[in-house]
């Protein structure tokens, strides 16, 4: 003990100090450490449950995501099919309409051509009639007024020969 005193260490102070420290530790433990530890435990549990919750949520989310992905793909496939059908339908309709238009166009052109041909034939006929009339007048003018009488008499004889063959 003297040695400790020589060193400046009071054993009773040490004991008081130790009792003090112990008391402090006990008080702290009771008032601080336990609540803190309890709090920390609670907090830890909370965090763990949160983590678990979040993991669960993540799993759910991932599951949902997978489901929605599948739905999306299914919908996409359906949409593609619909689009394809629509495309075929519109293509068919387009072809039909094109064919109808082509037919209508051909009919119109045919009708127009017929009208043109008819007009042309009419014009030709009119021109033909005019030419015929003019030719007849010219020939008659020559034949009626310029042919000698003896030629006419001969024509009567030769016409009779032709008749009586």
């Amino acid at each position: 003990m003297d040695k400790l005193l020589s060193l400046g260490i009071d054993p009773w102070s040490m004991v008081i100090y130790l009792a003090n420290t112990g008391l402090l530790l006990a008080v702290l433990t009771y008032l601080l450490y336990k609540p803190i530890l309890k709090f920390l435990d609670e907090r830890k549990e909370q965090i763990i449950s949160s983590i678990e919750e979040s993991q669960r949520l993540q799993e759910t989310f991932e599951k949902k995501l997978t489901e929605s992905e599948a739905n999306r793909q299914e919908a996409e496939a359906e949409l593609k099919e619909e689009l394809s059908n629509l495309h075929k339908f519109t293509e068919q309709k387009r072809k039909e309409l094109t064919a109808e238009m082509e037919e209508a166009r051909n009919k119109m052109m045919e009708k127009a051509q017929q009208e043109i041909d008819a007009k042309k034939a009419n014009l030709l006929k009119e021109a033909e009639t005019e030419v015929k009339t003019l030719m007849t007048r010219i020939i008659l003018e020559i034949v009626e007024n310029k042919v000698p009488e003896n030629v006419i008499q001969e024509s009567i004889h030769s016409a009779w020969k032709q008749y009586s063959k």
Binding site: V143, I152, S158, A159
Partner: peptide, 26 residues
């Protein structure tokens, strides 16, 4: 104009020049 034309009971045999002219122009 020339030639002859014979009518016989509604039928005609035309050997006249006028018929030839008209035939020619047609």
């Amino acid at each position: 104009i020339g030639g002859i034309r014979v009518f016989q009971d509604g039928k005609v045999k035309d050997h006249s020049w006028i018929s030839r002219v008209l035939r020619f122009t047609s």
